[in-house]
């Protein structure tokens, strides 16, 4: 501070006008840099997010199920029994025929909302299930994540036909699914929501078959 007393700048700095101007200039500069940064990265970030979605999709739906672009082939289905919001259902097609559907579901876990991604084949069997995001206790209920445990894969191949409705519950409730040591609420919520998802498919499957017919007339 003593050194700076020699500079005329220090006198200038005492003026309110200078202070406001300095702040104004700096904030403008920062804003400008942020705008530049945002424009520079915008396209790349969009690309990365698209890649992320594709990667997630490939986790629940093997590439052998489709030859279309499911992310661009979606139908919106309102079903208030299943969700307050209309559900966006992505459709996997092989040679134009619907082979599989993929949709997101939300449910309340112990720590907050969990997002699940479920894929089914046309007979209502589960192809794959993943947890997209959750706020469950780390080390206790995060065995939902495929990177921590393969619990989530026990759903593969199950349907309402091959597992009776009363078995769709954790073992503690008399069902078929393992709960985690010390955490029952999380798996209970997941199992319950998956059952809802299967019901949602049964109620709405005519929509998907309907959409093939439309598509075919457009195509041919």
């Amino acid at each position: 501070m003593k050194l700076l007393a020699n500079f005329s700048l220090s006198k200038l700095r005492a003026h309110v006008a200078y202070q406001s101007a300095a702040m104004g200039v700096l904030c403008t500069l920062v804003t400008f840099l942020l705008v530049m940064g945002q424009r520079l990265t915008e396209a790349d970030i969009k690309l990365r997010l698209e890649e992320d979605r594709l990667e997630l999709l490939s986790q629940v739906l093997p590439a052998s199920y489709y030859d279309n672009v499911p992310l661009e082939d979606a139908v919106i289905i309102p079903d208030t029994l299943f969700s307050n919001e209309p559900v966006e259902v992505f459709i996997g097609r092989k040679k134009g025929d619907v082979s599989s559907i993929v949709f997101e579901m939300e449910t309340e876990g112990y720590g907050g909302t969990m997002k699940l991604l479920l894929s089914l084949n046309t007979s209502g069997e589960i192809i794959g299930l993943r947890v997209l995001s959750h706020k469950e206790t780390p080390g206790l209920a995060d065995k939902l994540e495929i990177s921590k445990s393969d619990w989530i894969t026990v759903f593969n191949g199950l349907s309402l036909q091959n597992l009776p409705r009363e078995k769709w519950a954790v073992k503690k409730d008399g069902g078929d699914f393992d709960q985690f040591t010390g955490a029952t609420i999380t798996p209970r919520a997941v199992v319950g929501r998956v059952l809802n998802g299967l019901d949602f498919y049964e109620r709405n499957k005519h929509h998907f078959t309907h959409s093939i017919k439309e598509e075919e007339t457009v195509d041919e």
């Binding site: 202070q19 700096l26 840099l33 940064g37 945002q38 970030i45």
Partner: peptide, 29 residues
């Protein structure tokens, strides 16, 4: 030397927040 002592906090916060946002964008991309 350019930052007036009276308004140094908002100025520093602008610099820090700007840096964090740019690092965030660059890493995301």
């Amino acid at each position: 030397d350019v930052i007036p002592a009276e308004v140094r906090n908002p100025v520093m916060i602008a610099i820090i927040a700007g840096t964090v946002t740019l690092v965030d964008l660059a890493m995301n991309a």
